[in-house]
Simulated scan of single mutants.
Amino acid sequence: VRDLAEHLGLTEAEVDEGMVAAAGYRAGSLDTPNTDSDAEHAALSSGRTHPEQIGVDDPGMQLMEDIRALVPHMAELDDRERTILELRFGQELTQARIGAELGISQMHVSRILTRTLTKLRTHLLAED
């Protein structure tokens, strides 16, 4: 980098920046096997070329579709139901911990969760 900077009359930082920018324009072959470092993605596509992956189900997309389908039904829940769902699935608290925070029993939390999840499930199945 130092020699190149000196030869071009630039600073080393400018040469570094240029090298990073140039790396963004290298096109790889579609026939190059995937070496994705993301463990979940790599497990689905390990060693497969890009054309071989076309049409392969992406579990992340299904999750996003499920979440989008839930959004309008979440608005129909009351504040306590939404709070308990957030504490249980968002913050991953136990039912006992949720009960302690809300001043209700673990059994009551369990009943509310069961009722709320049944309500959401019923709405989602009715859409299908």
Rank of each mutant, 00 (worst) to 15 (best):
V56N: 14
I67N: 05
P72A: 00
S105C: 00
V56M: 15
S29N: 08
L30S: 06
V15Y: 03
L70R: 01
S105W: 02
A126V: 07
L4G: 00
V15P: 03
D31S: 07
H41M: 15
L93V: 01
S110F: 13
R68S: 08
M74N: 04
A100Q: 11
P72N: 00
D16F: 15
A39G: 09
S110E: 14
E86R: 12
E52W: 04
D36R: 10
A22T: 01
A23L: 12
G60N: 07
R80Q: 07
M61H: 12
V56P: 08
D128F: 11
L30T: 02
L63R: 11
R48N: 08
E12L: 05
G55I: 01
I67H: 10
L30R: 06
G24V: 04
E40M: 11
P33K: 12
N34I: 06
T94R: 14
L85D: 06
M19R: 11
S105G: 06
V109R: 10
L87F: 15
D58T: 12
T114R: 14
A42H: 08
R2Q: 14
E92V: 04
G99W: 04
G90D: 04
T94D: 14
E52G: 05
G99T: 03
I104N: 06
T83G: 05
G103I: 02
A42D: 05
R2F: 09
E81N: 11
S110T: 14
E52Q: 14
A5M: 02
A27V: 13
E92N: 08
E65V: 12
G47R: 09
D66V: 12
V20N: 05
P51L: 03
A100L: 02
I112P: 00
A5G: 02
R26I: 05
S105E: 03
R82M: 02
G24S: 12
A22C: 04
Q106F: 02
D79N: 11
P51T: 00
L125C: 10
G103P: 01
A100W: 08
D36I: 02
V1E: 14
E76F: 04
F89N: 03
G18L: 15
L125K: 07
L125T: 11
E40R: 10
T94L: 13
P51N: 00
V15H: 03
D58P: 09
S29W: 02
T32E: 13
T32R: 15
S110W: 15
E52L: 07
P72D: 00
T94S: 15
T32P: 07
N34V: 07
G60Q: 08
D16Y: 15
E92A: 07
D3S: 11
V1Y: 13
L10A: 08
H41E: 13
